[in-house]
Design a protein around this nucleic acid. Structure first.
Lengths: 186, 186, 186, 186
DNA sequence: CATGAATGAGATTTCATTCAT
DNA sequence: GATGAATGAAATCTCATTCAT
């Protein structure tokens, strides 16, 4: 593993455990096993590190979801696969997922270029809009629907990880709650 | 307004605008118009101030909701009133509500005694459990239902405040979305 | 002596001995016998400290010169008194004078508000212009004359301090060289 | 141009624009288009680079002046030619000249071996002493005369470059001011 | 010779907290 | 109770210099 990756791993772990502010850059370097200054060769500032981490892991999630989403005529199936694969990724990568959540509710989100954020959100909004036009989803603002779905994903995640469920039970809960969500918006 | 209240108001405003870490205690004192040291007469540490603020405003919300909830035989009506009055309070007190959200997603939440958190949540869980026993709400863990409801409230809040809706339109959206939520869990 | 003055004294000494860059703020605090942070209560940044020092000592010099310059019909006498009292001040306050020189040849000079610089220079330029109009000083740009005079003062200072002359010999040299300067520009 | 020269050019430019302290060695390497470490192959330390630059350009000036100074029986002519050619070199090489000035007023000057400084100054001092013995220059310490002359050169340089004079006007001013200087010391 | 990643000492600055008045 | 000057630990970031390739 090269030093950049060592730093990213160390930063992820410490930020999630102690928060952005509670984590000194020197602790990250120490945890990564590199010198203090090395961190700043890869990331000009602590802020840049935090934002780079977000983009890094968010891309990983987006990429995972799109890899697992077959292009499908059935919109419900498509959305379901996306929700489920988000959740599975979150369950398999809890630290990364919590980092993303932490970032979303922090002031740093305002420092990410709008372009980057849009590029991740737009495909989903487009899909929702299509579903609304086809009368599949109730007539509502697409961004409200998106908000409801992503929050639901977060709820599921919290619930599933707070109970120590077996993989089978996890899948069952997720299936059930997705159907509830779908009933709600259709 | 006595100095304690001046400090609380100033802290609320600054914490919401600049975050916990982005707000120095000296700025709070300045904004409150009191001396640097005075803050520490009322709150032993900055952390204690933050936690006291959370308990203060959370109590205000809980108190408002319970004041507006008539003891009612109809469980749906009871829950609906609670959800709606939470939302109305949030819309009328956006700064306080955002403070509460900010606190919930911060590491400080771990410093609040479990007792205090339980005391606020238990009545709601009890109500949900009752509704499940009566077959009104689908058979699910009560805490998942609670999670779904509170997150929904937060979603609605985000949506209602992001669009500048008229009071009438706000009420309409809230009514509609509550019915959707209710359909989902029943 | 209050802490502000202690800091000023310590900073003066260290800056002159080691240069602006060669002097760490922590060394200044140490030399002044105050805590690290105390320095930054009085001066927001190291730059502000350096600039404040300049204005402080330059004012002291200007004030000294004007206190010692009798309003005099005879322009030569006036200028001579100014030059001589500048020199005497420099000889009595070599550290402060060297600080001023150091500052003048540093990039910090660009950070001093033009107003402040003008206020110090203008009276002298006006006097020179008057002398030129009256035909006392050769027709030349007033700022060139000013430049020549101030540089001469600096030369004298360097010379007088490099040799360890007696007070009497000092005065003699200064008198002679001023006459040379005066011959040059008249 | 070989790498050593590239480094020298880059360093000159950056030191004059940003000061010694304001210029990181990495910036110099970057500007020169060489690797970070390459700089240290040619100059053991940053200080050594700065001092080498000074000796380099000062030699260039000295060499230029002596090349333009015909051995001449007439001492006034000799000195005049030296002063004028110094000035012309300064006007043609403002960056190098400003570097030399910057160096003279920096603590680095103390790090140059006295031998080197003497070797540059002594011929001039000898000439001045000869002029004093012949009664051409007033009886004064030779080093004071030298100080006066070099400072005058610096004054002229400042003046000539601050006004945007034509070449012709430049020469005229220089001629006039030299005569003034000469009157002063003779 | 040339490279540039890595180093780590050190510099400036912030800020929660104390305490004499 | 109220004050605010003083504290000093700690945080971020810079940069001259080294050395394995």
């Amino acid at each position: 593993m090269d030093k950049r990756d060592l730093i990213i791993s160390a930063a992820l772990k410490l930020f999630v455990n102690n928060g952005f502010h509670g984590t000194a850059t020197s602790k990250i370097a120490q945890e990564a096993g590199v010198a203090n200054g090395t961190l700043f060769q890869y990331f000009k500032t602590k802020d840049e590190l935090i934002i780079a981490l977000y983009i890094h892991f968010k891309d990983e999630l987006v990429e995972y979801v799109s890899r697992n989403t077959a292009e499908n005529a059935d919109i419900k199936e498509t959305i379901k696969t996306q929700v489920l694969s988000s959740l599975f990724w979150a369950i398999d990568n809890p630290t990364k997922f919590r980092f993303i959540q932490q970032f979303h509710t922090s002031p740093y989100i305002g420092q990410v270029e709008q372009d980057i954020l849009n590029k991740q959100v737009e495909p989903h909004l487009a899909l929702i809009q299509k579903a609304i036009k086809q009368g599949i989803i109730k007539p509502m603002p697409a961004d409200l629907v998106y908000l409801l779905i992503t929050n639901q994903v977060f709820c599921f995640y919290l619930f599933v990880t707070s109970k120590k469920l077996s993989k089978a039970k996890q899948h069952e809960t997720i299936e059930t709650t997705f159907e509830m969500l779908w009933d709600m918006i259709t």
